[in-house]
């Protein structure tokens, strides 16, 4: 039982990271109908910004955190104007290719500026974790889980209870109709990119003390987050969260009880099973072609 609890905690912790990045995928997909393959690089860039402000410049952690997130908001604006906006009237394929290009540009830019050395970023708390009976709770994972819960609540309130949230939803559902109702579609898409970049950045900053800060950190997480998005149902916020958590728990238990080397395999096995038997994901709706 102790083993199960420990694995469950770790699985939820790592799953929460996937969920945070998956959320960024979903929001941009809903607003623009394209997958942003640079979402993982948003996490990596934010983690490096934290290293610059907090470690290199020695600024207080909370200040570095706020400035790093502000930097991510700016990156969201630049990304929207530089990658999405010029291609907004094209089909989804050029936009997706542009996001892949942007992902390569971001990782190589960081490599050129900061070098290839992995960096250490301290966690938010001085205490690495707490022993609760037989289970060790890593303080950083606790923080990640808490932030994920808060974000779920925030997203519900924001999208369902605020006018801006409803405008964003309207834009994602039908851009032409939203435009006819006086909603500035380009502004809504800009806000979505900013929010997604900040979310991706938040995930990167939170996970950096656990996985270290490296050029590859974003792509590793993004691959799983992408799988989580499909499992949860592409385009569904709740699905992204549930998909991420499920993936984290499945791979952790799969590693413990079946095979450690095939840990990643379990995640993708589940993905394949979903693609075959329930391609719309857990919360997605079946899209039927009309006769």
């Amino acid at each position: 039982m102790d083993l199960v609890l420990q694995l469950l905690f770790t699985g939820i912790g790592i799953g929460a990271v996937y969920a945070l990045v998956a959320l960024g995928f979903v929001l941009i997909f809903r607003a623009t109908n394209v997958v942003n393959f640079a979402q993982g690089e948003f996490s990596m860039v934010a983690a490096y910004l934290m290293v610059v402000f907090s470690v290199d410049l020695g600024w207080p952690y909370w200040l570095s955190f706020l400035i790093a997130l502000a930097g991510m908001a700016l990156l969201g604006v630049i990304f929207n104007l530089g990658v999405y906006y010029p291609l907004r009237h094209r089909t989804y394929l050029p936009v997706i290719i542009a996001t892949i290009g942007a992902s390569i540009l971001l990782s190589n830019s960081v490599l050129a500026i900061y070098g290839p050395q992995p960096q250490v970023l301290q966690g938010w708390f001085d205490t690495p974790g707490i022993q609760l009976g037989p289970v060790y709770l890593d303080s950083q994972y606790l923080l990640i889980i808490a932030v994920t819960i808060l974000l779920v609540l925030f997203n519900f309130w924001f999208f369902e209870k605020t006018l801006l949230g409803k405008k964003l939803q309207a834009t994602s559902q039908d851009k032409e109709m939203a435009s006819l109702l006086g909603i500035s579609v380009s502004t809504m898409i800009m806000i979505t990119f900013i929010y997604s970049a900040v979310l991706g950045g938040l995930a990167g900053i939170l996970v950096a003390p656990v996985l270290f800060v490296s050029i590859q950190m974003g792509s590793t997480i993004a691959l799983k987050a992408f799988a989580a998005t499909i499992i949860g149902g592409f385009g569904d916020v709740t699905g992204a969260i549930i998909g991420g958590l499920a993936l984290g728990v499945i791979e952790t238990f799969g590693a413990a009880y079946i095979s450690v080397p095939y840990k990643d395999g379990f995640a993708f096995l589940v993905l394949i099973a979903f693609l075959i038997f329930r391609p719309q994901g857990i919360f997605g709706e079946r899209v039927a072609e009309k006769a």
Binding site: L3, L7, I14, T220, I221, T252, A255, A256, V260, P261
Partner: peptide, 20 residues
């Protein structure tokens, strides 16, 4: 005798296997 795949993000199952 425990193998693991490179670039793993979490080693909890491995550590628990060693413990057990």
């Amino acid at each position: 005798d425990q193998g693991y795949a490179n670039q793993s993000q979490d080693f909890t199952p491995v550590v628990l296997a060693i413990k057990q």
